[in-house]
Computed example of a mutant assay.
Amino acid sequence: MKLSELMAGKTPSADYEGWVTADDWVLAIDTAARGDTETKVSDYEVVQMGVEGLDAQLNPVTSEKTYIRAGQSTQKTGAARSFAVTGDRYVGDPAQDYMLSHSIKYGTGNGVVVNYVYFCFLNGVGEKGQVSVIVNSDGGGNAGESSSVDIQLSKIGAEPEEYTYSAEEGI
């Protein structure tokens, strides 16, 4: 499902205040073939079909030092964003089909890098960046059970930019 389809008729409220559930977060990736033209964010594919778990981690990077008379000190030097996508395989979902394609499963380097947006459905606030798609499991399980998938999306390159979803995007 394209981001524009998911957000059709929905307008996040910048003034939203209240509880947020896991279902209120949107992760969408650019599955278009790389070329000279940039894909509109509204055409990104939403990562949701068959997904049971979307674990968004910031993975802080720290430096530990010990100073005379001051003792041990920890300084944050960065953050390495990652998403763990787990769930059941659904053939026909554009996001899963892309991430589990032969060229991505066995690809390396820039061949597995995709653009993404991640934001709260309720207020539209989030981030935009690039991740490497790392497939840990492309299906498996016990007899009679759904085939499970385990995909990791890990930040690559520059720090993600602040991003706020807008209904006018891509029009």
Rank of each mutant, 00 (worst) to 15 (best):
G18H: 03
E52W: 08
V20M: 01
F121A: 05
V135R: 06
V112T: 14
E5D: 15
M49F: 04
E64L: 10
S132N: 13
T21I: 06
G87V: 08
G71C: 09
P12R: 00
V26Q: 04
Y116L: 10
A22C: 03
Y98P: 02
K40R: 13
M49R: 09
D24S: 06
Y67P: 05
T108S: 14
P60Q: 14
T77K: 14
T62I: 12
I29P: 01
T66W: 14
A80F: 07
E17W: 05
T21R: 09
W19P: 06
F83E: 04
R34Y: 12
Q130V: 01
G9P: 00
E52L: 09
N123C: 05
V113H: 05
V61D: 11
G53Q: 11
L58A: 13
G124S: 02
G9M: 09
V51S: 01
N110L: 13
D43P: 03
T86V: 04
T11Y: 05
M99T: 00
T74F: 11
Y16F: 14
T86Q: 11
R69C: 10
T86W: 01
K76R: 14
G50K: 08
D93Q: 02
G53I: 06
S82R: 08
E17C: 06
M49L: 13
Y90Q: 08
Y44N: 09
V26L: 00
V131Q: 02
K76I: 10
F119R: 02
F121E: 03
P12I: 02
V113M: 02
